[in-house]
Design a protein around this nucleic acid. Structure first.
Length: 255
DNA sequence: ATGGCCTCGGTTCGAGGA
């Protein structure tokens, strides 16, 4: 089973790239972030014609998340229960017995800002809700754009980013609290090449110079982690014309 | 370098992203 996540930075712009990637990689679940589409405009038919089921919740201009699968997506849930939020940042569904949680964590803008406080509150709410979900679903995966680089290996220039948003200690602590629930960072189960990232700024030739961060993650519950056979980041789509600034991240789990 | 780029809404610029 292949589980993947990709912040596409507008599904309208990236639809053909997503369909191409799906056809090449054949994931069992792909979690999309930043679809930036109202539900009425979601390209359900384009996915269906290519053989994919979709579950989605979105809004105009900002945010928006979706799950794409060749299998049925059951028991779909949108938003974090008990956390009132106008922003469409979370969708969950069950695919082949795996509870797939697709999350788009707020960016946070700058340490100390209102948006940063919202980010930490959102992460706290996600954690508190997940605590119960991990107990209820032995097979659970939390995938998406966390907007957190967990440690300095995940940062092209740790000194430059020290204490900045995406790298600050409260954010890293929030990430570790997901690990404390028993979730495992699938990427770090395996030896990985140094300086591999999932996001590169559009400016400054960020991708060409590999000035990136690893902020997109696939976290697995213990039963899934024990069956994880490979994990990685596919930089191929970042090389396309008109790319998303994020690359797909993925993990394979044996049956 | 107080920036650089991309998307969106909707107009020719500002907000937001990371």
């Amino acid at each position: 089973m292949k589980l993947a996540a990709w912040n596409v930075n507008s599904l309208k712009v990236r639809l053909d790239q997503v369909l191409e990637w799906l056809a090449q990689q054949r994931p069992d679940a792909l979690c999309l972030q930043e679809t930036k589409l109202e539900d009425a405009n979601f390209p359900v038919e384009a996915f269906r014609e290519a053989g994919w089921q979709v579950a989605y919740t979105g809004q105009k201009t900002y945010n928006g998340v979706a799950i794409v699968s060749p299998h049925a997506i059951d028991d779909v849930q949108m938003g974090i229960p008990g956390f009132a939020d106008e922003q469409k940042r979370l969708i969950a569904g069950t695919v082949k017995g795996v509870r797939v949680v697709c999350a788009y964590t707020p960016n946070g803008q700058a340490v100390g800002s209102d948006k940063y406080a919202y980010k930490l509150a959102w992460l706290q709410a996600l954690h508190d809700w997940l605590k119960g979900e991990v107990g209820a679903h032995a097979q659970l995966a939390l995938l998406g754009d966390y907007n957190i680089a967990p440690d300095d290996r995940d940062v092209h220039d740790p000194a430059l980013w020290a204490g900045q948003v995406l790298c600050s200690e409260p954010e890293r602590t929030a990430f570790r609290r997901f690990l404390d629930l028993g979730l495992v960072d699938s990427y770090r189960l395996f030896e990985q090449p140094p300086a591999t990232f999932s996001w590169w700024d559009y400016r400054q030739g960020g991708f060409r110079r590999n000035l990136g961060l690893r902020i997109d993650h696939v976290l697995l519950s213990p039963p899934l982690a024990s069956r994880c056979t490979a994990a990685g980041i596919d930089t191929g789509p970042r090389k396309h014309e008109r790319p998303s600034d994020h690359a797909p991240v993925w993990a394979d789990v044996s049956a």
